[in-house]
Design a protein around this nucleic acid. Structure first.
Lengths: 197, 197
DNA sequence: CACGTAAGCGGACCACAGTCCTGTTTCAAC
DNA sequence: GTTGAAACAGGACTGTGGTCCGCTTACGTG
């Protein structure tokens, strides 16, 4: 009846190259570590030109994000439509704790990519849709607990601040904290903030 | 009696070039904004070669930090030997609040430089002496208030996290919070954390 | 003042992120 | 099947951070 979604249609060669680029990037990073893979390396290994790489992904930061796009989407999906207490249904404080646990698990697997992407985005981290989604989630829950106000908004940011990839990796690798210790610390922070309100 | 401090002695030409570089950098950044000044620009304007620039300052990040070295040192000095409540003598909670106020004032003047330096240091921000000094100060005060423990260490980091140049500039410019609102938010965070302990 | 030496100097050079422009391919309309 | 146009491919090119190494100069010593 209706026409096919022409606008969204991806050309066959484009799709093929997209796959090749993502595969090559993942393989090279696996082999050498994220710091020792240049965009030229990726383009070359994928058998495409640099122009193609940048046309598809914009910049290095976006390429790194694309590599964890799927787990990222799954995580956000489980916040919105997943089982309680992570998803809807549980009391706000419980959901907040569940969110922290889940995000820290997510970092445990992907923080290296995320930190690299963050540090390349030149101070625009807070404007990125992924960060905004997390922040919005915490904001909603915290407003339920503490009511509206500038104070609440600040505290939402303050709860998010130690949940960055950079602090996480510092705690995990330099301070040698366990995942449980980090979780525990964040729970204490959340409880303190919510008890005070 | 004793020999002059030969080891510490800086050659006259080295000192002259050092001054010229700092002046040129400050002037160019003033004129064009920090993003539009390259290291070549600085070297050229100072009338020295790039090698000299990098010999003296290591990298771009260090050059930016050198430009605010003096206020930075003054700030740290006032933490250690200044008047109470910022300096020693006041109760820990009061000193903590004073520290936040003073650091936010410091950012109000220098956050642009500091964020630029941070974002260039590639995830090594937490290892930088300046950050470590701040963190240590908060750690000491918080241990007095909450006692020793992993929990306390986490909370010290959590109090520091929203006091980064990047979150500060985001709050100030994107969220358009006033300095007072930020101060007030951080005070609420400190009170919550300390009350819970 | 002459001299030896080590600190300091400077620009050629490199690697890499990101841009641009030209020639090519795909896909749909007819 | 033909054709037009839009999207795409790809490599040459640029700007920039950072390194290297042969040359210069300041400064202590005799």
């Amino acid at each position: 009846m209706s026409a096919p979604p022409v606008a969204a249609r991806e050309r066959a060669d484009a799709r093929r190259n997209r796959e090749r680029i993502l595969c090559a990037a993942a393989r090279l990073i696996e082999e050498r570590g994220i710091e020792h893979v240049s965009m030229d390396d990726v383009a070359c290994a994928a058998g495409v030109g640099k122009g193609t790489l940048y046309r598809r992904f914009g910049d290095r930061s976006a390429l790194l994000r694309a590599l964890i796009e799927e787990p990222e989407r799954a995580f956000q999906e489980s916040l919105i439509r997943g089982e309680a207490p992570l998803g809807p249904g549980a009391p706000p404080l419980q959901r907040l704790h569940a969110f922290g646990d889940a995000l820290l698990d997510h970092y445990e697997r992907h923080a290296t990519f995320i930190r690299a992407a963050d540090s390349l985005s030149g101070g625009r981290r807070y404007l990125h849709p992924v960060y905004r989604a997390y922040r919005a989630h915490v904001g909603v829950l915290l407003r339920e607990l503490l009511g509206d106000g500038v104070r609440t908004e600040y505290l939402a940011d303050a709860l998010m601040a130690p949940l960055g990839a950079e602090p996480f990796l510092h705690q995990r690798t330099v301070l040698e904290m366990s995942l449980d210790e980090i979780r525990d610390g964040w729970h204490a922070l959340v409880d303190a903030v919510c008890a005070a309100g």
